[in-house]
Amino acid sequence: MASTQGVGAANEDSVHVSPTGVVVLDGLSAPTDLPMGCVHGTPWFVRQLGAKLINLIGDQEVSLREALRRAIADVNDLHRDSCMLDQEAVPASTVAMVRERGDAFDYLVLSDNVLVIDLGADGIKAIVDKRVEEVAAEEMREALQGPTGTPEHASRVSKLVSVQRRLRNKPGGYWVAATDPAAADEAIAGSVELARVQQAALLTDGASRLVDAFGALTWASLLKLLRTEGPTALIARTREAELADPLGERWPRFKRSDDATAAYVGHLGAAPWEGR
């Protein structure tokens, strides 16, 4: 696994690993010109949530949805006395989790983290929740207009975040891990036979962008890069691409460089399929 900070003041991603599970989180950035109802901030939130999750999924009697529900409630209890958790402006995070449970490989994805599973002869499956891209379409188009790094661009991003906050964790909007445990019910979750899974990757959107935003790799070639060179190499190649387009002219985006986290899980049900 590897995680590096983007252009923000702190890395808002978090990755946690146990002998049977992996949790990857991507905290939602809060523009400095917008209010925040929590005194602790997003990096604190993702660290606390990740620590709760990796412990909870160790209990194989607890489903991944139930683990997420409990973890959100537990983190609420850590700061409800000092923070305004009834506000729209609270820390939030995307989630991707996997767990080995006997002969099963459990997974859960909430919001736009990406889980890539190599099922061998059955192909590669990319699991991602893109509902956030289906809301505030006009504001999103404006926020993607460059050049990145300018005050005008930052203002458009802040406008987008303001609108998204009003639609967060509501019917017709999109769902993330924040203060409402019911968001866990909206996650994409499932299981496949462990014997079918050859390798897998959990990626924040800062680490998946070479495929889904830049089109520079396929999911198959991304998995091969992770298997042969490791997550650090994937992030390094991502940074090279970002530096080659600093103003977002070729690849419009909200930040010149985003926090990037990748966790690679190999040699599960069988040896990696070298034919890829």
Rank of each mutant, 00 (worst) to 15 (best):
H40L: 12
E88S: 09
A96S: 13
D77G: 10
R69G: 13
V46H: 05
D106K: 01
E66K: 12
E66W: 08
V23M: 05
V95F: 02
I54T: 07
P91A: 01
R65I: 13
L34I: 07
S93Y: 01
E88H: 15
A73P: 07
Q60K: 14
G21T: 09
T94E: 02
S82N: 13
L25D: 08
S29T: 15
I117G: 03
V109Y: 03
V75A: 02
L85M: 03
D74F: 06
I57Y: 10
P31R: 02
L78K: 08
K52P: 10
D106P: 03
N55V: 14
N76L: 09
V109T: 03
W44P: 02
L68G: 02
Q60L: 14
R65P: 10
D33N: 12
A96G: 06
D112Y: 05
G102C: 03
E66H: 09
Q60H: 13
V109D: 00
I57L: 15
V75W: 01
G102I: 08
D118A: 04
C83W: 01
D33C: 05
G21L: 09
N55M: 14
G27W: 02
F105Q: 01
D77R: 13
T94A: 12
K52A: 13
A92P: 00
L110M: 05
R47F: 13
E61P: 08
C38M: 09
R80T: 12
M36D: 15
V46K: 01
L110R: 00
D77K: 10
I57P: 05
L34W: 00
R80E: 09
S82W: 07
L34M: 05
R65L: 10
D81H: 10
V95P: 00
A51K: 15
L56Y: 11
V23Q: 03
S111Q: 08
D33A: 09
D112M: 08
G27M: 12
Q87R: 12
I72R: 11
L49N: 06
T94R: 09
P35E: 06
A89N: 06
T42W: 02
L34R: 06
V23W: 10
E88N: 14
R70T: 10
D59R: 08
L110D: 00
T32P: 10
G21D: 09
S93L: 01
N76D: 13
H40T: 06
N55E: 15
G58N: 13
N113T: 15
L49T: 09
L28V: 15
P35M: 06
V95Q: 00
L53W: 10
L108I: 05
A51F: 11
L64Q: 04
P43V: 06
V23E: 07
V109A: 00
V62R: 14
N76V: 15
R65D: 13
V116S: 00
N55Y: 11
T32D: 09
W44Q: 04
V46E: 02
R70H: 06
R70W: 07
V114A: 09
L25Y: 08
V114E: 09
D59C: 03
E100T: 14
G21S: 15
G37R: 02
A51V: 14
G50N: 06
S29P: 08
H79C: 13
V46I: 08
D74C: 04
I57N: 04
S82R: 10
T94G: 12
R65T: 14
Q48K: 15
D81Y: 13
A71K: 04
A73R: 11
A30F: 12
